[in-house]
């Protein structure tokens, strides 16, 4: 498995999601040599940009990469891939590396949410996915942010400014949108509405977690893990601490790169 960079082994994981494309290059299956996140997912130019970008950042060429594993919604259309794994397996591998000993992983992605159960050895043992509904997913938060004329990345900070929560009772994206508009019409402060939105989404996500029976410790992965307000609301709803990582959005790509490394060694 020698390559242009000497004896080091570089592997690449590409997580082609519905809303974003993420790539990670791992050096010797341990060190993250480079990563990219492009806010454009499957079927766009995002995957190619993320791929070319991560190679450029790492100062590597395609032929320097020993193995590439693709995952995510667009995994089967990523032509550079040597291997393909489901995003559930990729997140499980990534989460086991990010959070050693983690037993429950809540992955909130752009258009779906998944709860993974890992064995004590960090192997995927069971999972549930959300129904075909945007509630409790990143899309729900994006829709709500748009109504509030906010960027989705501002929701976490906005939640922190709230003194109380505006009740958003519906977990349906369409009906919740109406409720948010009603709250705006009543003059409810935006931070309170944001907190209500997070609590509404947290109820939905927590119900998915409960279908699996929560086993601790638990972690949140996916882009939504960057939203402190959502993590607070979800932790409160589940009655536990949730682990997050600054690289949570890269968890699937990291897991894919680690999978590639393990396969390259076989």
């Amino acid at each position: 498995m020698g390559n242009a960079m000497g004896t080091d082994i570089y592997t690449l994981g590409a997580d082609i999601g519905s809303a974003a494309s993420k790539c990670v290059i791992l050096k010797n299956g341990a060190e993250m040599a480079a990563s990219t996140v492009e806010s454009a997912g499957a079927g766009t130019g995002g995957p190619a940009r993320a791929f070319e970008g991560v190679l450029a950042k790492a100062g590597l060429r395609r032929e320097d990469i020993a193995m590439i594993t693709a995952t995510g919604y667009g995994r089967n259309s990523f032509a550079e891939a040597d291997l393909v794994i489901s995003e559930l397996s990729a997140h499980a591998i990534g989460a086991a590396a990010f959070f050693p000993g983690v037993r429950t992983v809540i992955d909130i992605g752009g258009q779906d949410a998944k709860v993974l159960r890992l064995t004590e050895a960090g192997v995927l043992d069971n999972f549930v996915m959300n129904d075909k509904c945007a509630a409790g997913t990143g899309r729900f938060l994006e829709v709500m942010a748009r109504i509030l004329e906010l960027d989705v990345t501002q929701l976490g900070d906005m939640d922190g400014k709230a003194e109380q929560s505006a009740g958003i009772s519906s977990t349906c994206t369409v009906f919740a949108e109406s409720e948010v508009i009603s709250q705006l019409a009543k003059g409810t402060p935006i931070p309170e509405i944001v907190r209500g939105i997070h609590e509404s989404a947290a109820v939905r996500t927590a119900s998915l977690v409960r279908r699996m029976n929560l086993v601790l410790p638990a972690a949140v992965t996916g882009g939504v893990a960057q939203n402190r307000g959502m993590i607070r609301a979800l932790g409160q709803e589940l009655g536990c601490e949730l682990m997050i990582s600054p690289d949570s959005q890269l968890c699937g790509a990291y897991g894919a790169a680690l999978h590639a490394y393990r396969k390259a060694g076989q």
Binding site: Y73, S86, S89, F127, M129
Partner: peptide
């Protein structure tokens, strides 16, 4: 069937 595809593939991987 993409969500089902992911679920079935993950199940097979397990």
């Amino acid at each position: 069937y993409e969500q089902i595809r992911s679920a079935v593939q993950a199940f097979a991987e397990m």
